[in-house]
Design a protein around this nucleic acid. Structure first.
Lengths: 247, 247
DNA sequence: CCAAAAGTGTTGAAGTTACACCCATGC
DNA sequence: GCATGGGTGTAACTTCAACACTTTTGG
């Protein structure tokens, strides 16, 4: 396990990633099944890894993402550090570490990130822990290994806050999309319904999207217009935020 | 330096605190002068310390705060982890570590917090690093040791974001205060002017404050009414946020 | 009586909410 | 022709931004 020099592992710091994706209907998170250990029931966990000594935190998270999804240059933002000395307190978690880690009782602090990816770009990778990965509906996540549920909740909260301050969607949707896909995305991040007309008005006023000369085909209802993000304006809004409340 | 068992130090993780205070006119941060080392020019730094093995991150930050200010139960919120392998890259920072740390080249990841305190409650403590502490105007902070300037900027940004989502002030002001003190506080956090009348109207509509039966005395102008925070409502607003933009 | 900060209202513009019907398509 | 989701407008209401004069006190 111990590799030397350039790839020296720091056994005290890990990174875990909450990778959000959108299936055009609901929000999902890419979770892995923790590698099986005799006598420990299966349990889902956030993908993560120990960091290398020469690697900065963002790079470590990027590496985990790359190994898992094959994707580079993904949106990534830090959620924070989680370092409760007893963040591993469930008996099954301890057993699992004993079977897997070289120093199972060491205190490991994890730096969590969340990431937004387009599920269509994702292709399962052959790397060890990626084989067991699957996209789980946010609403179905009730329990995770270690303190990962807490981390997941913090990441989701961060995403909810972000959506009120900045445009979101560029990273989660394909290049062209329909208005109702965008609408569903917002609803599923916020967890409540939004009026269709008001939503459209607001998006158009913000100049976040512009319509393409292309319509859906083969759908058994009025075909919808395709849209894309107005990149210039989107970036401007990212920088300055919505600045809503008015203090 | 190496203490044993209960107070075993983790030499790879530190915490640093950006402690904000308000002097009724401008926003300040409590900085310390790094302990003098021959051949290293003096430089201000954020107060911080390595953490103990059995201590969680919030507690470590709370401990630093307590040692520095004598205050308990202070508002404290994590800014994030800063762990660039070359976060110590300035030659003077390296020299300083060589003189002070037992393992000066070790990579140390720091978990930063910011904190809001009432400057009047602060009393300089006799602890080692607290002696050289002073409240520096936010606008005068141009350079700090290590990556502390970057951390300071991240904390300030977090504070600015927070002020648009939640009430602020309870931790920074004394129990009773005037409207213009509150007004100045908001202006100095945001860094721009706010219309007096509109500000007052907004605060009152939110029910954040209520007036006391007491006026300023001995001032050479119309004495102002004292106010206090409406605690019940303040807490409610803290929980639900302002929820401004309307998605 | 002067200097200094406190306190107070109105108006026009912009934004928000709530709400219901017709449209284009595949089958 | 029917089921399905796409697309559209308006009116009442609330919020926001901009703006200037009077008040109370100490000296």
């Amino acid at each position: 396990m111990q590799i030397k020099n350039k790839h020296q592992i720091n056994h005290r710091i890990s990174t875990d990633c909450v990778i959000f994706g959108f299936d055009f209907n609901q929000l999902r998170v890419l979770l892995i099944e923790r590698q099986p250990v005799e006598g420990v029931p299966q349990m889902m966990a956030l993908p993560g890894d120990l960091i290398f000594e020469e690697e900065n935190l963002d790079m470590a998270a990027g590496r985990v993402l790359k190994e898992l999804t094959g994707l580079n240059d993904i949106f990534l933002e830090q959620v924070g550090a989680f370092g409760d000395p007893n963040r591993v307190n469930k008996p099954n978690d301890k057993k699992w570490l004993q079977a897997v880690r070289q120093d199972p009782d060491a205190r490991v602090i994890t730096v969590a990130y969340y990431s937004l990816v387009n599920m269509n770009d994702y292709e399962p990778q052959p790397s060890s822990f990626a084989k067991s990965a699957s996209w789980i509906l946010v609403d179905d996540i009730k329990e995770l290994a270690f303190d990962h549920f807490e981390i997941f909740q913090a990441a989701l909260k961060k995403l909810k806050d972000k959506i009120n301050m900045q445009p979101i969607g560029f990273n989660l949707l394909p290049e062209k999309f329909t208005f109702s896909q965008l609408h569903k995305l917002y609803e599923s991040i916020l967890g409540n319904e939004l009026d269709k007309r008001n939503f459209r008005r607001k998006m158009l006023k913000l100049n976040m999207v512009e319509s393409l000369d292309e319509k859906q085909e083969g759908v058994p209802h009025k075909p919808s217009q395709y849209f894309k993000f107005n990149e210039e304006n989107y970036l401007k809004l990212l920088e300055k935020g919505f600045n809503n409340f008015g203090f």
